Simulated scan of single mutants.
Amino acid sequence: MLHEETWGVLLVVQPDEFEVWYTTEDFPDTFYPTGRMVFSVDALAHALFVTGRAPHDQAAYGWTSVYEWLHRVALVPAYVRRAPTGRLTRSDLARSLDRSEKVALSYALGQAMTGVFSQQVVSVRFLMHVDRYAARHGIQFAPNTRRRADLFGETTAGGWVVAEAKGRSGSIDDELKETMRAQKRTIRSIGGTPPVLAYACGAHFPQYKGVPDHLKLYAVDPEEAELEAFDLPADRDRFILAYYEPFLAALEAGQEEPTRDAYELASFGPFQVSIGVLAAVAQRVRQARLGRMNRLYRDVTELLDTHLSATRPANRFTDGTAVMSKWQQALDQDDWSTERDEGFPDWWY
C-alpha cells in the first residue's frame, strides 16, 4: 500500500524501503498525475519474478524459469543502491557497464518497476509476461503481429490490464514520451473482454542540470487500438495455472524450509533470498497440474480472500506469495556516490 502524505508531510521511508516518484498522462481521472511509491526491496524482487518471460516447462527446459529469476534478482544487490533519502539509485558498477549491459539492466528494471506500479497504483493482483502465458498454452500469434505488449494481468476488482514496459539508463526525452503517447493498444481483448487499462511505463534515470537523478517512472495510457491489435485467447483458470507454476518450480528447486505462517518456503542460500506460497494455494495449483482445472480461479481467489489479512508484512503479497531477501548490506554500500565531488547538489544525497 502506498505511504500517503499526512497533513502535508511525507512519511519517512524505512531503511529497507525505496521511494520512487511517478508521473501519469492520459490516465482516467481517478489517478493522480503525480505520485510517490514506497516499496520494499522484497517487492522489487517479487516484481522481477512475476514479470519474467522464461518458459516454465520443466520437461523441455529444466529449471529455466528459476534460473532466469535468480539471474534477474541478482541484479538488485549487484547494481541497485538505496540513497540515504530512500531514493533508488545505481551502483558505480552499474554506471560503468558497457552499453549492451546497461540496456539489459534497464530492461529488467523497467519490467520490475512496471510490476511495482501495477500493484501499488493500478491494484493489479496477478501480472504475467504475455510470452510466458503464450508459451505455456501453445498460443500462436498472427505473423502480421509485429508488436505486442509485454505484460497482462488482472486487478483486484477483476478487470484485465495490459502493460508495456520500457527502461532507460538516462532520461526519457520528449521524443520517447511522444512515441509512448502515440503508441496504440496492441491487445484488443483478453478472453473476449477489452482491458480496462492498457498503459506503457518507462523507468528512467533523468538528468537534472547535468546530474543523473534517482529512478523515476513515467506512465501513459493511450486510448486508441493499433490496427494490428490482436485478441489474446486467455481464460482465468489457465491464467492462474500459468501464473503460479514458476512459484511451484522455485519451491521444488530451492532448499525446503519448514512451513511458517501457512506458507510453504524454499531458500536459495548463495543468493540470500527465499520464496514462499500459501500452502493452501500451492496445493490447489498442484491439483490443477494433475488435471483438476475446473474452477481453479474461483478456488484460488477464495483461498486468498480467506487466508490473507489486510495487514501483512512487506514481504507478503496480494497473490499469496512471499519473497524474503537479505540484501541490506549490499543496498547500503556507499559505492554509488564517487561522483559527489563533481558538483552534485545537496538534494541528491
Rank of each mutant, 00 (worst) to 15 (best):
W7H: 02
L97T: 09
K216H: 11
F247A: 03
F271H: 02
R236K: 15
N144H: 14
Y61I: 10
Q329Y: 07
Y61G: 04
P195A: 01
D299I: 05
E252W: 09
G62R: 05
V80L: 04
D131N: 12
R95D: 11
R90W: 15
D16K: 06
G62K: 04
L151E: 00
Y22T: 01
Q58V: 14
V220E: 03
S100Y: 08
R148L: 14
R36K: 12
L109E: 13
D174Y: 11
K209R: 15
P195D: 07
L88Y: 00
F230P: 07
D92N: 11
F31H: 04
D261H: 14
L290H: 06
F49N: 01
A225T: 04
H307D: 10
T145Y: 04
S118T: 14
K216N: 00
Y22A: 01
R312P: 02
T30I: 13
L232H: 09
M37D: 06
A279G: 02
R72G: 01
G202I: 08
S267G: 14
L109Q: 09
E342M: 13
T155Q: 11
A104N: 10
E302H: 04
R72Y: 03
I275A: 11
T338E: 10
G291F: 08
A165E: 04
T30F: 13
L197T: 05
E19D: 12
T6A: 03
D173A: 04
T64Q: 13
L241K: 06
V300R: 01
H307M: 13
R72Q: 02
F271E: 08
V220F: 03
A229W: 11
M324H: 12
R238H: 15
I240T: 13
F117T: 00
V76A: 01
A157I: 09
K216L: 01
H307F: 13
L105V: 07
V277L: 15
A203Q: 07
P206I: 08
A149T: 12
E302C: 08
H214Q: 13
E224L: 13
A47E: 02
R286M: 08
S123H: 14
V38R: 05
R147I: 10
E101M: 12
F344M: 11
